[in-house]
Structures are given as C-alpha cells and as structure tokens.
C-alpha cells in the first residue's frame, strides 16, 4: 500500500482534483458484462420506462466505481484505499446519444488517529448529488 502522497502533506479541508466522466449507453453495456449485472433497467429503454424510470439508468455500482477514481488518481496506488462506502441516493439517467456528464469531487474530511485519512466524495449529475455519505478511508505514505 504505497501512496505517493505523504500524510504530512495533507490538511483537513484539502480538495482533491475533481473529475468529470461521461456515462454513455455503451459504458453501461460494458459494465454489465464486466460486472455480471445484466438488469435490463441498465440496457433497455422500454423496460426501464415500464418500471417507472425516466430512461435507462447507470448501475449504482458503476457510479461508485468511478467516484473513487478521484482518490486513486491522487494517491497513485489504489490499494491505499482501506475502506470505501456509498449510499446510492439518485440514479444517473443515461439517454441514447452522446451520454451525460457526472462530476466527481473529494475533500479531506478527517485525519484519523491511526494515521489514515477520511476523504468525503461527491458525485453530481444534472445539478443534484447522486451519491450520499460517500467516504473513503485512505492510508497515506
């Protein structure tokens, strides 16, 4: 677990570089195959609408998987993440075409007694947050 960021360089309130990632229908198909989650609400517009959704929605786990990139890009070694949790509060709605953008951001929320830090993450789509209580515990160098 070799982070390139030393603990001594970090202060509570520090913002990590934000990321904007585009979600397309093709991304959802690729994630369905890689994860094994073949639920048609993530692939079939007609089915998604039949169960009351506005359109096809992204897998919540895809949003979770992308959000942590804010941390893993920053520390370089993804295994520095020792705990990661999210609440999936709203879906990312993905219409056909060029896709939609989700902005991911992170902030150092606490420096823990054991030398780890807590990073609070946000994911914003269409002006609203789609993840709640998104937190990563990270062991720095």
């Amino acid at each position: 677990m070799a982070s390139r960021i030393p603990l001594s360089a970090v202060t509570v309130g520090d913002e990590l570089p934000a990321l904007i990632m585009t979600f397309t229908r093709d991304d959802l198909v690729r994630y369905a195959h890689a994860s094994g989650d073949m639920n048609p609400i993530h692939r079939e517009e007609e089915f998604a609408k039949s169960v009351g959704l506005p359109d096809v929605i992204a897998h919540g786990m895809l949003t979770m998987g992308r959000a942590i990139k804010v941390v893993t890009d920053w520390v370089a070694d993804p295994t520095a993440v020792v705990d990661y949790s999210v609440r999936m509060t709203r879906p990312v709605v993905v219409p056909a075409g060029s896709g939609v953008d989700v902005e991911f951001a992170g902030k150092v929320a606490a420096i823990n007694d054991d030398g780890t830090i807590r990073v609070d993450l946000t994911a914003t789509f269409d002006g609203q947050t789609v993840l709640g209580q998104a937190r990563a515990t990270v062991r720095l160098a």
């Binding site: 991304d27 994860s35 990139k69 893993t72 370089a76 993804p78």
Partner: peptide, 11 residues
Amino acid sequence: FALAIGDDNPI
C-alpha cells in the same frame, strides 16, 4: 473491469 469503470490506472 477497470476498462468498464473507465479507470486507466496502470496498476
């Protein structure tokens, strides 16, 4: 899996 989440971390 890494490609599917759009993460190109070389690790």
